[in-house]
Design a protein around this nucleic acid. Structure first.
Lengths: 223, 223
DNA sequence: TAAATATGACTGACCGGTCAGTCATATTGC
DNA sequence: GCAATATGACTGACCGGTCAGTCATATTTA
């Protein structure tokens, strides 16, 4: 009964998780999409269960493939996770590096970063990817290193540059942010950690939280 | 064995020497120390391997007891972890609550908190306990709740009070820190996360990091 | 039909928690 | 004092369940 649905079925099949048209009929297009489907399924699975606790069998089910199929695309579970991190975060980092900051005041740039963080990270699954790296990283050095090279170093370089210019323009009273660019990202990290741990007892309003931080640092008057 | 037990069973059972603690037969001193030994071993084991990956068999080996013995002192693995958190962190929280802050300027109090954090938390195994809570908490709601009630809520109350007084005294330009006391602890959390993930590529100097934060917030001139 | 792909039953290793039995120590009897 | 007896803390083999990764077989493509 496999052939039934002739080949053409190809193209669209791949899509999301569910679509999965009965077995059979894989065209190169569908095949190409399989890798994406697995990554997408892994994101869902690991986001809800964690990397260590997430089961590849469930990833396979979500992706509409068999467990063995995953091993045709990824050598092992850890590499699958690594590819997931790359797929989700690298584009955002690249966009950040490419963003034209010009000579805008640091406060203004920081406001934009907050907005971007809230929309592109916290408002999406990407916050779960980051949380996964933070929580599982200590146990998986390869993932920690990858994340450091691919994300942390690059983001810090961007922030350091901004901070340096701000100091030169007299927008900052000292070079604290140049020496420790991490300080600008701290509230974002804390918000992600908090949401994973305490949201059920005390939900946090990320944007309000981060703007309060800017108020604290830049001394803006409260509304 | 039949005869033996009769009569006497009555009277003396309790009275006599053994007055003290329930105790069975083993030396009470030895036994009292056993619980501590297990907790201490659990700290080592979980610190290096993580809670989920840490093996109770190894905890037992480190403590010099058999695996089954652990279950004579703790009902299960999760409770063991919880008791560990309580034993390590509650005293510090209590000390913080009891510390006489008086009318000292917030900046001064904050400096003291940094010193205390560096010495009592970051310089000890307590940072590992906190990291464990942060990384394993999302997967173990009971632990997250316990930590929230026992540590987070109490610390935030203390900070909020300090921030409130600082606002009234005009030491802060707005109520950002009153609304989000977490902001004061953010660098500490980030430092703990960082040390677990990236120390091998870029070690962080906690005290310098946290003091830079205070410089950023309170606007102190760079040296 | 051969090659490329995909499948899912299966294997081996792991580990939390259990429990029947052991034995060090306390108590009793004389 | 000390042998007989009682106690319960302690032990570790074992059980049940889980899951990453494998591979013989089946399906699809060319």
């Amino acid at each position: 009964m496999k052939r039934a649905r002739k080949k053409s079925a190809a193209g669209r099949g791949k899509g999301g998780v569910a679509a999965a048209p009965r077995r059979g009929v894989r065209s190169r297009a569908a095949q190409a999409g399989k890798r994406e489907a697995i990554l997408s399924a892994a994101l869902e699975e690991f986001s809800t269960r964690g990397f260590a606790a997430g089961r590849l069998e469930d990833v396979a089910r979500r992706a509409g493939v068999a467990k063995g199929t995953i091993y045709l695309y990824f050598p092992d579970k850890e590499t699958l996770f690594q590819e997931l991190v790359r797929a989700e975060l690298s584009p955002v980092v690249a966009a950040l590096e490419a963003a034209p900051v010009g000579d805008l005041p640091l406060r203004v740039v920081a406001e934009r970063l907050v907005t971007m963080f809230a929309r592109e990270i916290f408002g999406t699954h990407r916050k779960d990817v980051i949380r996964l790296v933070l929580t599982e990283g200590p146990r998986f050095p390869a993932i920690g290193e990858f994340y450091y090279r691919e994300v942390v170093e690059r983001v810090m370089a961007v922030i350091r540059g901004m901070a340096q210019r701000a100091v030169e323009r007299g927008e900052l009273p000292n070079d604290a942010l140049v020496r420790f660019p991490q300080l600008l990202g701290a509230p974002g990290i804390v918000a992600i950690i908090w949401s994973g741990l305490f949201d059920r007892w005390a939900k946090i309003d990320v944007e309000a939280f981060m703007r309060a931080y800017l108020d604290l640092v830049f001394g803006r008057r409260a509304a």
